[in-house]
Amino acid sequence: MSAQILAQAAGEITRTSTGEAATFWVLAPVAVLAALGMVLARNAVHGALLLVTNFFCLAVFYLLQDAPFLGFVQIVVYTGAIMVLFLFVLMLVGVDSSDSLVETLRGQRVAAIVLGVGFAGLLVFPIGGVINNGTTAAGLTAANDGGNIQAIARLLFTDYVLAFEIVSALLIIAAVGAMILGHRERVDGKVTQREMLRRRFAEGGRVTPIPGPAVYARPEGTRLPAGLPGGGTDPGAGQGAREGCGDIEGNGDGDNGAGAHARGNPRPVGAGKGTDR
């Protein structure tokens, strides 16, 4: 008991404050559940939002542990920038491209879960033993004297200045690399509108644009091919309408269409329906 009092007098912490404990016990389950939900969520966007929840909890933990700079950087950089980048790419790739549930390696799922439980046990039980021994935390009151950000800046620009410079180089390399990866080289010159026009007339055939579906059609419905003003259907228009239809259908049902999408064969939905009148 006297040792504990001595430790506290030296600024060491064996027990955190009640407020911190309450915050921890409220937010720790939220963080773990959000992480579990991120792994288990079928929809990748739900996973991203759960990960944002988890990052917010971690930011609060940083704030609790005398790291206000890291806490706010966590919110600004992780939940603000990185997760927005994730969502952006998710939307570009397509939300409906959900996971395939086929196991390519037999028993991989069970093996992964067993491995995870074993790994968690190996990590958690030694730490639990350490807690029972009663470790003391030195606390950051002395180190944070004069402000956390000032202290971090002092360290960053003195002891860690070389690492700081290397990291800045890394950031530039990453930015240039992302630009190179995202860049598409144009092999031939840009096709002007005049060239497109000449090519269209040189090919012959239909030069006017295909009328949209249901133009001049008496019944309503976008699946119907365009009719001619005098009656009858435009053969080219009908084909165009059907192709358009199939495309719309193929993009529309995202739940089970992911596999078909990946192989690039949209199903010919609605073929033949358009001309039966």
Partner: peptide, 24 residues
């Protein structure tokens, strides 16, 4: 509460992330 509880939480989160990498 002992500060080392944060370490247990971090271990759990790390494991969940590792299992997710293996599963998804």
């Amino acid at each position: 509460m002992n500060p080392s509880n944060y370490l247990i939480l971090a271990a759990l989160l790390f494991t969940i992330g590792a299992v997710g990498v293996l599963l998804r």
